[in-house]
Simulated scan of single mutants.
Amino acid sequence: MRPSRRRTPRWARILLGAGLALVLVALAAVAGLRMLTDRYDRTVSREQLLDPGARKDDTELDGPLTYLLVGSDRRLGTTDESQRSDSILVVHVPAGLRRAYLISVPRDLLVDIPPGANGSPGGPDKINAAYERGGGGQGGVRLLSATLSRLTGLRFDGAGVVDFAGFRAVIDLLGGVRMCVDTEVRSIHTGAVFSPGCHRMDGGQALDYVRQRYDLPGGDYDRQHHQQQLLRAMMEQAGQTDLRRNPVKLDRVLRAVGGSLTVDTNGVPIEELLLALRDLPADALLGVQVPSAPQTIDEVSYVVLDDAVGGGLFAALRDDRVAEWATGNSRWVRPV
């Protein structure tokens, strides 16, 4: 720790904030920030989300940092054994904390799920079934982390679950986000048609759009990219929204962000994590697809890992060499 450098964090530069959500907003610095940070900290739910075998022994805040983020339709405290995780993201911040890689894990990825602590049997299945097999809730996220650790050899610095309904409120409080649609798509949830071009979307529209995968050229891969784009759109909107003159609205945004999260920071105080990530540039986000391809097995549609290239990605994550891997495998990497 360097007390002399503990200045007020510039919220407009923070994407990962507590580091643990599909999206975390950047906010303008304001007077009374410590008070607001304390209030935000108290709104965040905390659980032991990581399986012991998937957890790093110690987190060094100068990096590298690797987090597991899960998006769900339901807040973690609501147990639903029939629920599967809708979005799975591995966020890797290399040493120096000047770049972030957003690695989207296909939810249909065929993996070997270990036995659950609840007595559920292990075996091959789609990765988003790990949450269901673990019994939902905290047990489901733990089994998901154990599954990913077995697949990749990674240990995580923390994990988080974001409730999509809560983030809808955050987007609305920010005045919506600017999303650019590349291919026309009709929502299978609402019937809304998203036409090509850049549009201002409210929370409901944005979350509806980024969850579409049918009728898109890249299917689920396009859905993953659109979710990554939403991360940046929220960051940019928060940076453009002048909340310094409206502390009441800032407080509402902070509470909405905190209220949508359940986190496991591996013992690191949220404020220290915010400070460590305060200088992460907005243009430093790169989206990464896990090298894989769709495949039908016994009349069931899966996504199957490219063992050679995907294994190289996982090794690069373990060794903090993702930049080198990305240079040699550009087809799987794109700016967010």
Rank of each mutant, 00 (worst) to 15 (best):
L97C: 05
L143S: 08
G137V: 02
I88S: 07
P64T: 08
I103M: 11
A21D: 02
V91E: 04
V93G: 01
L65A: 10
V23M: 13
L36N: 01
G71H: 07
T43V: 10
Q83T: 09
D86R: 06
L69G: 00
T147V: 11
I127L: 10
R107P: 13
V25W: 11
G63I: 10
G136D: 06
T59H: 12
P64L: 12
R142G: 05
L68I: 11
K126M: 14
L143M: 09
R46H: 13
P115M: 15
L33N: 07
P114R: 10
I127M: 04
Y67D: 01
Y131G: 00
S120D: 09
G140Y: 05
R107N: 12
G71V: 02
A100M: 02
A117V: 05
P94R: 08
A100H: 03
G135T: 01
A129W: 01
V93M: 04
G136H: 07
L143W: 01
P114L: 13
L143H: 03
G153L: 13
V105Q: 04
G116D: 13
T147L: 11
Y40V: 02
V91A: 15
S85D: 06
D41L: 00
A54C: 11
S145E: 02
S72P: 12
E81I: 09
R74N: 08
R46I: 05
L33I: 01
D57H: 09
A146L: 12
T66N: 04
H92R: 03
A129G: 02
R42A: 14
K56D: 12
P124N: 13
H92C: 06
L61E: 10
L49T: 11
A29E: 15
V91N: 07
S72L: 03
R142H: 06
I113M: 02
P121Y: 00
R84Y: 03
V70P: 05
G77T: 12
V90M: 10
R39H: 07
L68T: 06
G119E: 14
S45L: 13
D125S: 15
D41Y: 02
R133D: 01
R155T: 13
G96D: 07
D58W: 12
V25L: 04
Y101F: 15
E81Y: 06
A95I: 03
L68V: 08
P52W: 14
A26I: 00
R142T: 10
T79P: 01
A129L: 02
E132V: 03
S85T: 14
N118F: 04
Y101Q: 00
V90K: 02
V93E: 06
G140R: 11
G96K: 09
Y40K: 01
I113W: 08
T43S: 13
L102Y: 09
V90F: 00
D41P: 00
L69H: 00
A54R: 08
